[in-house]
Design a protein around this nucleic acid. Sequence first.
DNA 1: ATACTATTTGAACGCCCGTTCAAATTTCAA
DNA 2: TTGAAATTTGAACGGGCGTTCAAATAGTAT
Lengths: 236, 236
Amino acid sequence: MARPQRDTRVEILKSAAAAFRRRGYHGATVEEIATALDMNKGNLYYYFRNKEEILYACHQYSLDILLALLDEVLASADPPEVKLRRLIVSFVQTILDELHGTALFMDLQPLAPAHLQKVIARRDRFDRGIRQVLQEGMDTGVFAAGDAKLLAFAILGAVNWIPRWFDPHGAAPSETIAGAFADYLIAGLRQGEGVRLQGCRPRAAGYGAPTTDTKGDGRSKGQGVRSGPKPEARSL
Amino acid sequence: MARPQRDTRVEILKSAAAAFRRRGYHGATVEEIATALDMNKGNLYYYFRNKEEILYACHQYSLDILLALLDEVLASADPPEVKLRRLIVSFVQTILDELHGTALFMDLQPLAPAHLQKVIARRDRFDRGIRQVLQEGMDTGVFAAGDAKLLAFAILGAVNWIPRWFDPHGAAPSETIAGAFADYLIAGLRQGEGVRLQGCRPRAAGYGAPTTDTKGDGRSKGQGVRSGPKPEARSL
DNA sequence: ATACTATTTGAACGCCCGTTCAAATTTCAA
DNA sequence: TTGAAATTTGAACGGGCGTTCAAATAGTAT
């Protein structure tokens, strides 16, 4: 057959991504990744140095696709509202149809520091792209003023969460979901005549935190994942 | 001291939830859960049968809190818009301040079938509660017509994603985030005079999939997680 | 056929980690 | 103080899984 090397590598990535999505990085075994392809697990080490490198390659694969999509939209001359809609729609459809749910859900911590750094940097580019479109819309006046960073997180959260409940065999196809999400997520941004009631008890800090970095450091904190080692914080 | 049994159990849950959030179920070791409490790992088995039971208890703990919150709001006589705002605001604040980011992010698959079933059932209750408020708002006319199920997923996704980027030491406190998210997520629901442009290329299925279950089965599929064993689906 | 490379195999190693358990220690009531 | 129950300790076991590697096989040009 044609180019076995590269093809097999991609095959492995597909299988690995599926396994990682189902069981998580640590839960997925090298053996199940291999046997899904009728391979022996030892054989994977002919194509990748180790399990961690497979995860890294999966991340890069997804980011290649999503960032290409972002760049295409950003380069266009569409008004912000249309840009955002195109982004949401194709983002959702790509995640569901092409990446089959694997995208930004994969684990980051197992990555080696050097790899982690690179992945986070690219995630940052993605975040900033979305914020840029939002900001553009606010400056134009199409979107109501607000914290572009928080709004971008909200949009990405809604989208990134989809794989958790999406059923490929369900009645709602990816286009329906993509359309509905775009409608809803954009509607909330519009320069509104709406009432904006504050509801229940009075809130201390109402809205606009600074649009700049939430934290002091200018360092990128991809997708906001606490990149550093420290973040302790007790739960429950 | 007072009641050692129950207190120690909760201490363990706190430590375990933090570990699970950071490394995932399989990535977290029983030893790190124990040493964080200056305990010997063997000692945990005096309080819990095994690791899986700890995860289960974590889920139940979170659900206890969140469902209590839901019930309180549902029981009120507030109009739908206020109900929804209260839900979003206190949901966000509870997740960030009380649960420290642990909530619906924890793994489900490692749970034993019996436990999984119970957790999913309770998650379903939560989902349906949100949908109920949305539907109420649509029936009243405060909210624009739409697919309550999809909208609920979008809202929960935005909220559930927060722990991925939230920095407890960052400049944006939980109240700010809670308020901003509530504003944005509710604004998108309002019965709008808005233009609703469709943007780019024409979409096949525009919006309203049936409000009823997306799938044919009436069985609950908690938070939409594909509960069954099958769902294969290749990625990448 | 031959020889050289690319790929696959299968078995083995070694470590990590969940789990067990008997003995040691602490707690507390009488 | 005494003794029984509650809790903790520390060590050990055993299985799972990532990784290695030498040998086997397939592929290909000459």
